[in-house]
């Protein structure tokens, strides 16, 4: 089934928080493939179904190392959704979440939907950020927070499905007629492909 809507989603966060593993888990459902070969994990797709609509999420993984920090705007330009990831066992990665959310609110598309992922929940004993603190921050900035584990798969489906739903609703509200397909004319107007006009005589064509 062909998707009716496609949206660009970016994952952001400090290096080693598990962004790539999270998108890989979401898009493939597993870490290991049957055949061993090099995998380019920076662009993946995930299809979700919402209210009978097939929605395709284009998942853009971004570089997390500090030296590439300035390049992030290139990647989140035009994104309709963002997952800001931190590692629950690393306090400093949560501090970076705050600056990512701030930056996205100021510089990304105005209607971008943001969710936060507290990753590596399979290592609960090493937790440095309390769940209450993370939830309180998310509530304050008006975004959703999910506990995830790319290793066990916990919360992975939920975070992508929920983000897909949010993006879909925002975009449908913004462009109610997006389902209609047409062509942009020279003046920027859409050439709507008309319904069948009067039938010509068959001899006209062949």
């Amino acid at each position: 089934m062909e998707p009716s809507q496609e949206f660009k989603i970016v994952t952001l966060g400090e290096g080693r928080v598990g962004k790539t593993s999270l998108t890989l888990k979401a898009a493939r459902g597993q870490f290991h493939e049957d055949e061993r070969s090099t995998v380019n994990a920076n662009f993946l797709q995930k299809d979700i179904t919402f209210q009978g609509n097939q929605i395709r999420l284009h998942l853009w993984d971004t570089a997390g190392q500090e030296r590439f920090r300035a390049l992030a705007p290139n990647y989140y330009r035009g994104a309709k959704g963002a997952i800001v990831v931190y590692d629950i066992t690393d306090k400093s990665s949560f501090d970076r979440v705050v600056s990512w959310v701030k930056e996205l609110s100021m510089q990304a598309d105005k209607d971008i939907c943001i969710v936060i992922a507290g990753n590596k929940c399979d290592r609960e004993k090493e937790r440095q950020i309390s769940k209450a603190e993370a939830m309180e921050y998310a509530r304050k900035v008006g975004v959703l927070h999910f506990d995830t584990s790319a290793k066990t798969g916990m919360g992975v489906e939920e975070i992508f499905s929920e983000l897909g739903r949010l993006v879909y609703e925002v975009q449908m509200k913004k462009n109610p007629g997006t389902g209609e397909r047409g062509y942009k004319s020279r003046k920027g107007k859409k050439i709507i492909i008309k319904k069948e006009e009067e039938v010509q005589k068959k001899k006209d064509c062949c």
Partner: peptide, 24 residues
């Protein structure tokens, strides 16, 4: 990916996880 495969695909010491190229 093909260039990396050329060197490592048949090498038993590498795992699938080793062959994942992340964004960095």
């Amino acid at each position: 990916c093909n260039c990396i495969d050329f060197i490592w695909k048949e090498n038993d010491e590498t795992t699938q996880d080793d062959l994942i190229i992340d964004s960095d």
